[in-house]
Structures are given as C-alpha cells and as structure tokens.
C-alpha cells in the first residue's frame, strides 16, 4: 500500500515535469520525483518498531564476540539511509544548477513559459 502511494507520488512528479509549461513548475516536478525515489529507498530498509543499527556492547554475544541475531532481526537496514543521504546531496546540487539556469533564462527571455522560449528549432 505504502509502496503504491510512493509510486503515485513518483508519477505525479513525472506528470508535472512533462506537462507543465512553467520552468519553475518543471523543476518542482523533478524534485517531487526525486523525493518519491528517496522515500522509496528509505521504505526499503524500514522495519516497524525497528532499532537503530548501531552495535553497542549489549548486542554482542559475550562468548563468541558475534553480533546477536536478535539485533540483526530487529534493526533497520542502514544501507538505504546511506544511499538516500548521497542522493539528497546530489539532488541538491542539481537543484541549485537548475534554479540558477532558470534565473539566467528569465534574465534573457523575461518569461518562465517554455512555450515562448523557443529559439532552437529543428
């Protein structure tokens, strides 16, 4: 169910990016897609009532030094969180570039409407 909602969010973003005429709205659509994917990645590793995946002294088997299976079965998956952190940084970078492109285009054409920004043809 949650995954379906997440996919719906992704499709809303894609729809917005494809059909909107305003450049800023296109950027917003792309960012909605980006966040839908980030949400999806987080949900992959989520576990209801999970614990933070940080190994303390109590989580080790005192005899063998191995991590207890109760810890492995109870903790959330840390890897998607690392992925999301990276992808947020990347999307921040591309958002900054996209917005600055919008500002420069507005400076040249005096409009945000992509149907009026059409000097390139062919």
């Amino acid at each position: 169910m949650l995954y379906a909602l997440c996919f719906l969010l992704f499709m809303i973003g894609l729809y917005c990016a494809i059909t909107k005429k305003n450049m800023v709205k296109i950027v917003i659509g792309i960012m909605v897609m980006e966040y839908a994917v980030n949400l999806f990645l987080i949900m992959l590793g989520y576990r209801t009532n999970g614990i933070a995946p940080i190994i303390g002294k109590g989580d080790l088997n005192p005899e063998t030094g191995q991590v207890l299976s109760s810890f492995i079965n109870g903790s959330v998956d840390p890897l998607p969180q690392a992925l999301v952190l990276t992808s947020i940084v990347i999307s921040l970078g591309s958002l900054a570039l996209m917005i600055s492109l919008c500002i420069r285009i507005y400076g040249k054409y005096r409009t945000f409407d992509i149907t009026k920004i059409r000097r390139l043809r062919g």
Partner: peptide, 29 residues
C-alpha cells in the same frame, strides 16, 4: 540565450533519466 535554453532542456531530460536509474537501483536492491 540559446545555450541556456539548450542546457535547461538537457538538464530536465537528463535529471529524469538519472531519477529513473536511481529508482531502478532501489528496486534492484
């Protein structure tokens, strides 16, 4: 003006492509 227009077009389509790839990476994981 033309360079910026082309860059914006490229960037929108390129970003969508990148998001597709990231989504696929998540699904594979």
């Amino acid at each position: 003006a033309e360079e910026l227009e082309a860059a914006f077009k490229y960037m929108v389509l390129g970003s969508i492509a990148s998001i597709f790839v990231l989504f696929a990476v998540g699904l594979v994981y």
